[in-house]
Design a protein around this nucleic acid. Structure first.
Lengths: 196, 196, 196, 196
DNA sequence: TATGAATGAGAGTTCATTCAT
DNA sequence: TATGAATGAACTCTCATTCAT
């Protein structure tokens, strides 16, 4: 086995552990998911997990950041800097809610563990960094007076809050909004942040 | 001791336990807060807690409902049915965010435990009932065409989502919005839900 | 209230506790029967039990001796010293098994707690003393060569063993032997101990 | 380590736990013997016991069945189907009492726990099955009119009762019957059950 | 490198006993 | 004298982590 495939193997196993963990934590919660359960479902030994992650907390923290990265990538997919602020806003907004609705486990995981005590300050800071491209968009839009003159966190809350709220309600009530309804919601959100 | 003061004593101790639990759970989470820790901080024996609550889950569930009731009361404080839809919307909205900002532990508690596995279906249903007066307002406003023709859950998400999001960001970043800024945010939220 | 009725009251309550304890221990076992449960069923306070018995072990020990006394009384009921050894043997034997079958809770209690660690040496010795009148009969019968020349404990075992064994099997299998069957069994036991 | 010695190790540890448990339960009873005490005496960690037994009740139940099996094997040792009913009866009878006298802890364990609430119905049924070969002997002997025409449970009680009774008295009084005395007792028992 | 048996600290919970009323 | 709220020691059981293989 050459260096390349050894590395690939290592990455594969790490991802296997992360995926299995997400699956099980969604079903049973952090404390309902012993390391032994993850190991068994992943088809590896419990001790092996400790070769890839320092401990259970580290595993959760890494999973959190991993999901955040995927969310970010999904959000920016097809993003076009040359479109209008409104179009770019709606693009980001709809990308995000669609990703959450397609990946409810990922969504629930970040929602539930955002403030968990085992989530380190470092993870929170890093996951904040990951989101900086989107932050930039809001700062730019605000500077250009396309958005209301409100603190940047207020604007983000007006945009992001409804997404999480909608995603939760849909998962709760096992509904599924149509593409049209989603676009209407995106427009409503734009009404909230846009400068009149 | 007469019947009245015996009852008062009993309620006092129950509230002592609930308050202590909220304090500690906010800091350490459900699983980071053993019963023994609650007992010690409350200055009582561990066994005593089991005279007031069947078990740890029941304690958490009762705390959840207790907080929900307080949130509801705060939200409806000073509510006037004769005002316009916009005024009533803003009144509820600002009452809620102000309560969350004044009681960050209560806010974090309901956010973190809303979907926890140890939160019983009954608790969820009961806490939904508690919120029904506010639900009625939204249904009424929508019927009156004062709000957009969107599914009721979408409207609630547009209104409630930014509140939680703002509260989280403020607690995270230890900021505090001025009353003026809060009113501006309320207006922005109204822009999102109002019918043009 | 005069001295006599005060004493009567005290005895009544003591017996109430003993009776309730037997009832509950039969259903749930020693460790499945907390003091609080006895108190509740007896309609008194838990602390009150400690005015009548030093602790839970003392209560059980006293109950054991109380039952033994009743068993002894039942066994000697109608006993006639002037009858033949065979008749006296059968009389004692049938009295005992009939009492056990009529009072299965009492029987099970002494069977199950005979060797329990919380049964004191003193209790065992005292309950042995209680049985001495019956011992005397066996010693007399053996001296008179009416019974086999075997150690006295062997003779007692030949007589008493089948009684407990039969009582257990009947309670187990919810059978009920007829009076005729019981007399046949008594005769068979006499065959075992009698001198040929 | 190969498969064979791994299995051997596993069995060794399981037996170590069972043996230690019998030792301690005989001295202190079920509830006087915490898992931690078993672990300490066995020189293993408390958690280890739970790798071999689901819980404390399962451990006791397995111990019960294990002892029953050994008792049965001892009872049938040297049994010869071609001997007379009397000889076979005496053989089984003496084998059993000798085993009980040589293994007083095993005897006391099954006597004390036979009706304990933590003994499952399954265990009782299984232990009944184990004893079926001996049952068969009694049924056969009764059919052949070698034994009295009494219900089978009565006959078993006449035979088995004295054994437990004798064993108890001997353990209580720390006596030891000679082989001759035991044979005399077996003969007396035969007198009880034999057809005249 | 990968394993999983073993560990033991620490969790939730029960209940005999005490003692202020 | 009778009560029952309060206690806290002690129980059973879980599981993150280690380490010999």
């Amino acid at each position: 086995m050459n260096v390349h495939s050894a590395l690939k193997n290592k990455l594969d196993k790490k991802n296997l552990i992360l995926d299995t963990t997400l699956e099980l934590i969604s079903e049973n919660g952090f404390h309902g998911t012993p390391i032994s359960m993850i190991a068994e479902k992943a088809g590896i030994g419990a001790g092996t997990i400790y070769r890839y992650f320092e401990n259970k907390e580290a595993l959760i923290n890494e999973l959190f950041k991993e999901i955040k990265r995927k969310v970010m990538n999904a959000m920016l997919d097809g993003y076009n800097e040359n479109k209008s602020f409104k179009d770019r806003f709606k693009h980001l907004w709809m990308n995000l809610i669609n990703y959450f609705m397609d990946h409810p486990k990922a969504f629930q995981f970040i929602e539930q563990h955002r403030y968990a005590s085992y989530m380190s300050k470092l993870t929170r800071e890093e996951s904040f960094m990951i989101m900086s491209p989107v932050m930039m968009f809001f700062i730019e839009a605000k500077s250009a007076k396309a958005m209301k003159d409100l603190p940047i966190y207020t604007i983000i809350s007006l945009a992001y809050g409804p997404i999480t709220s909608l995603a939760k309600l849909q998962i709760d009530h096992k509904q599924k909004l149509s593409a049209e309804r989603i676009e209407q919601a995106a427009n409503a959100c734009w009404d909230a942040v846009k400068n009149n």
